[in-house]
């Protein structure tokens, strides 16, 4: 098989205060896959995400992105390849206008003027926010801010898009719009979520992280319909949702 876009091997990590969050995580994500990372609160999902682009390092094991190991000397390229969209768009959007914010990443990569502008508009176009390019981000609705946050990362032309709780705090229409955008992107995607119907809608494959290890890895439909597995890892479908009804 080809080199996986994301190759995590035996990743273990303990915080300086002694709390161990990861106990040997192995996972692979291949080109073009959309994968959901599921797990209860405190399972180590955020810790894992922070390892994917080298925010956290120093534990045991290894992470490689399209064959490039996550190491200090590669950090710049790694952060271009791994686009992380954080849960709170306000953490990500801090420039006075949407244009400057989306330009921030590619500018760090050395793009200037016409080329930079082209990248910015293309990225905003892909999330349907091109009309808002000169607005201040904090005047946008929450759903719009999340879409701009996705654009800020797309502008860096990443190999994989990592989304932390993409559907949280979105109203149903924004949630659906974001899903349509994500499907249209045609990009490798890892999505950390508690929103199991969203995982089923968007991701053919799911990985369950529980107590710092991978507890399950398989087709999303099979994971969500495995009652014993779901119960064992504090995963619950929302009231009235039946995966079988979506087939």
């Amino acid at each position: 098989m080809s080199t996986p876009v994301l190759d995590v091997r035996g990743l273990a990590f303990a915080y300086p205060d002694g709390h161990q969050a990861l106990f040997g995580v192995d996972l692979h994500v291949h080109q073009g896959e959309r994968v959901a990372l599921l797990g209860p609160n405190g399972a180590g999902k955020t810790t894992l995400v922070h390892h994917l682009n080298g925010i956290l390092t120093g534990g045991a094991g290894s992470v490689a992105v399209s064959g490039l190991p996550v190491e200090k000397k590669n950090l710049k390229e790694i952060r271009r390849r791994v686009g992380v969209v954080f849960q709170d768009p306000d953490d990500q959007l801090f420039m006075p206008t949407v244009r400057e914010d989306v330009a921030f990443g590619p500018r760090n990569l050395g793009l200037r003027r016409a080329e930079l502008d082209g990248v910015v508009m293309a990225a905003l176009d892909r999330v349907g926010m091109a009309a808002y390019v000169d607005r201040p981000p904090h005047h946008l609705s929450f759903g719009q801010r999340r879409r701009v946050a996705v654009a800020t990362v797309l502008a860096m032309n990443p190999s994989i898009l990592v989304l932390d709780e993409p559907s949280s705090n979105l109203d149903p229409a924004s949630r659906r719009e974001l899903a349509e955008i994500l499907v249209s992107l045609d990009i490798t995607l890892l999505m950390v979520t508690h929103d199991l119907p969203y995982a089923l809608q968007l991701c053919e494959r799911s990985i369950v992280l529980s107590d710092g290890v991978v507890a399950a890895d398989g087709p999303t439909y099979d994971v969500l319909t495995d009652e014993a597995l779901m119960r064992a890892h504090r995963l619950e479908l929302p009231f009235g949702f039946d995966p079988a009804a979506t087939r």
Binding site: H50, N53, I55, K76, R79, R80, V82, V84, F86, D88, D90, D91, Q92, L93, F94, M95, P96, F104, G105, N108, L109, T152, V153, M156
Partner: peptide, 28 residues
């Protein structure tokens, strides 16, 4: 969290040319 988000988009504060970015993030 804002600093993590900055670093994730390839930002490293090395010299005074990066101060405007720091100023804007502090403003935000």
């Amino acid at each position: 969290r804002q600093n993590i988000a900055l670093a994730s988009r390839g930002f490293v504060a090395r010299d005074p040319r990066h101060w405007p970015v720091l100023a804007k993030s502090i403003g935000a």
